[in-house]
Design a protein around this nucleic acid. Structure first.
Length: 284
DNA sequence: TCCCAAGAGCGTCATGCACT
DNA sequence: AGTGCATGACGCTCTTGGGA
């Protein structure tokens, strides 16, 4: 089921079409025309802009959902109890996704797989109530091929099983294409999210890298200045290191000390320069 | 205003993998 | 072996921005 079906009247029509295999070709200028196969329809259909996709998440209309469920029952020959209908209604409204409602309706019409984003305790209760026949998740943990779960003596289950067996090759093909269409959308969404996440991570790490570099430079400058001041801990330690080096004949740390001294001198001259520059600016 | 290239989104097909 | 899912590849359409 396309994620951008805008309302539940569309769901109703969509479920009917997918069940009967019929195609819409009269309203090819409709904004929903991408539901039809572009290659099969002569006039080009408008693509879905990002703003159009936002319609898919609009709030559910309970009355429209009821209408869609009723229609789906009529189409499939299923008879749902009031409790089952209530469960679907609750679930769809809790999730606020029309495509989820559509998936439920579709699952009700025929025992094809249910999208992975339908997992919830309510979904399981739907399954327990024989409203749907398969649970989302790893594909082969559930019966995706129309076989019934559990005791199998339910009239609904038999109807669904018979319905599944009666599929023509063309109907099977249409269902496969539908599932693949949904899978492709899901896959692209997943990939896009992954790339977005990676880009955000890169930005965060670059920012942190910059901050740490700056922190390190500041600490080095502070240490260099500190080591120049007699009586400071740094100065005392540097002297101690110098004496030890002299005893050991080790030039490495002396070199570090010298660099520290040079850095300190540089910082002092820079500060003096800044002071004179400020003074000049103030005088002009 | 028209044209064109680039980019985004979509549907479909092919393929590999996992599961029964 | 059969089936379904995930995903890369391909071609198509549409949108958008820039140049003539």
């Amino acid at each position: 089921m396309p994620a951008d079906v805008h309302n539940l009247a569309e769901v109703e029509r969509y479920v009917k079409e997918e069940t009967t295999g019929s195609k819409r070709d009269a309203d090819s200028d409709s904004e929903h025309d991408h539901l039809t196969h572009r290659k099969a329809s002569a006039p080009p259909s408008p693509s879905v802009s990002p703003s159009d996709e936002n319609h898919a998440t609009s709030p559910l209309n309970g009355a429209a959902l009821n209408a869609a469920l009723t229609s789906a029952q009529n189409t499939s020959g299923l008879v749902l109890t009031a409790e089952q209908q209530q469960q679907i209604l609750q679930y769809a409204q809790a999730n606020g996704q029309q495509d989820l409602a559509a998936s439920l309706a579709n699952a009700m019409v025929s025992p094809i797989s249910v999208p992975g984003n339908l997992s919830s305790t309510l979904l399981q209760s739907l399954q327990a109530a024989n409203v749907i026949t398969s649970l989302p998740g790893p594909p082969h943990l559930s019966n995706m091929d129309g076989q019934v779960n559990g005791d199998g003596d339910s009239e609904h289950q038999r109807k669904r099983a018979n319905n599944s067996r009666a599929l023509t090759d063309d109907e099977r093909r249409q269902r496969r294409l539908l599932r693949n269409r949904m899978a492709a959308k899901e896959c692209r969404k997943k990939k896009k999210n992954y790339v977005q996440g990676m880009e955000e991570k890169i930005a965060r790490l670059e920012e942190e890298n910059l901050r740490l570099r700056k922190e390190m430079e500041e600490a080095n400058a502070k240490l260099a200045l500190d080591s120049m001041q007699e009586g400071s801990e740094s100065y005392r330690l540097m002297k101690e290191v110098e004496e030890l080096n002299a005893k050991l004949g080790h030039p490495g740390l002396q070199f570090i000390h010298n660099v520290g001294q040079q850095l300190g001198e540089l910082a002092q001259s820079q500060a003096a320069e800044n002071r004179s520059s400020d003074a000049n600016t103030a005088s002009t």
